[in-house]
Structures are given as C-alpha cells and as structure tokens.
Simulated assay, not measured.
Amino acid sequence: MDATLKTVIDGELVELPGTIAALRASMTADRAAAFDREIEHLPAAELPAALVRWALAGAGADDEDEALFERLARGEDIGAVDADPGADGRR
C-alpha cells in the first residue's frame, strides 16, 4: 500500500500522494519540472511543508482557499474567530 496524506477539502476526505515519487507522478511535465527545481534545493527542515504545499496545490485546496479569501474580501462573516482572545482589548 502506498503512503498517503489525508486532509479535508470542501468537506470531503481527500487522500494525497504521500511519497515524493507518487506526488511527482501525479503532476504534468511542467509542474514536475518546477517541483524538481524547488525540491532538490530545499533545506531538509523545509521539505515536509513544501511536499504538503505541492500535494495540496494539485488537489483543489487552493481553489477552496481562494473562495474563502474572496468571501472575506467582500466583508462576509465566515464565522472566523480571533486566535488571540485579548486582541479586541477585552479579557
């Protein structure tokens, strides 16, 4: 069984490629070339985050994020809460 990464995109559980080879195989030739250029020069400590970013980019997660940011830009209340409970001056 191949390794996978799991996440939720648009309310659905999605399995993403969990190895460098599987991730690269899921890309077009142009994306794979860009991936190779970036990955081979990354410091090892940055590799996990970069692999997740590349995997998510091919899964539609960027589209979901873009839609959310558009809603925020329109001033729509999306139910977000401030991560710092004291940010509004109340304690």
Rank of each mutant, 00 (worst) to 15 (best):
Phe35Val: 01
Phe35Ser: 00
Phe35Met: 00
Asp36Ile: 07
Asp36Leu: 02
Asp36Met: 03
Arg37Ala: 02
Glu38Tyr: 02
Glu38Cys: 02
Glu40Cys: 04
Glu40Gln: 14
His41Cys: 00
Leu42Cys: 09
Leu42Asn: 15
Leu42Phe: 13
Pro43Glu: 01
Ala44Leu: 10
Ala45Cys: 04
Glu46Pro: 15
Leu47Ala: 08
Leu47Gly: 06
Pro48Cys: 10
Pro48Asp: 08
Pro48Tyr: 15
Ala49Ile: 12
Ala49His: 15
Ala50Val: 11
Ala50Lys: 14
Ala50His: 11
Ala50Pro: 11
Leu51Lys: 05
Val52Asn: 09
Arg53Ile: 15
Arg53Asn: 15
Trp54Phe: 12
Ala55Asn: 10
Leu56Tyr: 13
Leu56His: 15
Ala57Cys: 10
Ala57Phe: 13
Ala57Thr: 08
Ala59Cys: 02
Ala59Val: 07
Gly60His: 06
Gly60Pro: 04
Ala61Asn: 05
Ala61Ile: 07
Ala61Pro: 01
Ala61Gln: 07
Asp62Leu: 02
Asp62Val: 04
Asp62Ile: 02
Asp62Trp: 01
Asp63Ser: 06
Asp63Met: 06
Asp63Glu: 09
Glu64Lys: 04
Asp65Ile: 10
Asp65Lys: 13
Asp65Thr: 14
Glu66Ala: 14
Ala67Tyr: 01
Ala67Ile: 07
Ala67Met: 06
Leu68Pro: 01
Leu68Lys: 09
Leu68Gln: 07
Leu68Asn: 04
Phe69Asp: 07
Phe69Pro: 01
Phe69Lys: 11
Phe69Ser: 12
Glu70Lys: 07
Arg71Leu: 04
Arg71Glu: 06
Arg71Val: 03
Leu72Gln: 14
Leu72Ser: 08
Leu72Tyr: 12
Ala73Val: 03
Arg74Trp: 00
Arg74Thr: 07
